[in-house]
Design a protein around this nucleic acid. Structure first.
Lengths: 152, 152
DNA sequence: TTCTATGCAAAATGTTTGCAATCAC
DNA sequence: GTGATTGCAAACATTTTGCATAGAA
């Protein structure tokens, strides 16, 4: 379950460090939630993570899962986004470079995208308006190749 | 209150046409809500529009305002967006070209932006992944000039 | 021990819906 | 008249919070 990325620390180590420096204790609940989060690839809702966690320990309350997700985001292990329907989606952030998302409006298939030209134009546009850019969100919506063809 | 834009129809005309072709009736409530919407510039929430409408007619229910906002979006007069906090913001869409938004994270000042290069790269990135792009949303977050300086 | 974390249930938020009464055409 | 529209209140979905209990260090 470790990320082997050169000399960088594992996600677990980063999380444990964050916990220690913030006087947060490592409870079995948090351990399970973080492990489950790290094992889950892709983009998923809090509710989806809840289901996965409760499969392993049905007595964990959803409040704890939401609270731990917040810690995961603060610690830099998770990133959260809302493509527009008011439901936050989470994904791994540690060891992952910034990217935006290309989402199929029919089946939900999501591709992580990154375009240097867009990124630098964003900086420039912000500067042109006197803004100091801190972050951005970009969602491209369309029909994926599969959905353009056959079904539905 | 009319938009004088060459030969194009006024927003009211477009709305009335939409109503007729969709078998929707022009009630005094809808009339007031649409008038208020058209008079309100910028980016505002449903709740903000509710307040403005209720100042004029306190007996209009919020459900009617939400329902009318939906009609406004469907008719192409309004555009709705959610910059990320789960609250939809509305703005005029009729007679306005597409644009994205640059938002001050401190004071909320919002600038409408448009960059040809970004737009065409978005198309290309989508194509490269076999997607047929239908729409996109982009939010740039940063500190506006005012907030970089003095007050906070 | 002492302060933090938990689970539960209730609250908060923004939006939508069911329904009987009302209104537009 | 007839079907669409309204206001109300309740329902909704997601996320957050208060609180008494339980647990970590």
């Amino acid at each position: 379950m470790n990320f082997i990325v050169g000399m960088s620390k594992s996600a677990e180590t980063v999380f444990i460090n964050y916990m220690e420096t913030h006087n947060l204790s490592m409870t079995p609940q948090r351990k399970l939630i973080v492990e489950t989060f790290l094992k889950t690839e892709g983009h998923f809702s809090a509710e989806h993570l809840c289901r996965l966690v409760k499969e392993k320990a049905s007595d964990i309350g959803q409040a704890t899962i939401y609270r731990t997700l917040k810690i995961l985001v603060e610690s830099g292990l998770a990133d959260s986004m809302d493509p527009g329907d008011g439901v936050a989606l989470y994904e791994h952030a540690y060891g992952h470079q910034h990217h935006d998302h290309l989402i199929c409006v029919n089946c939900g298939a999501t591709v992580e995208i990154f375009d240097e030209t867009i990124e630098s134009r964003q900086e420039k546009v912000a500067e042109d308006h006197g803004y100091k850019l801190t972050r951005h969100r970009m969602f491209l919506f369309g029909l994926c190749a599969d959905c353009q063809n056959g079904s539905h």
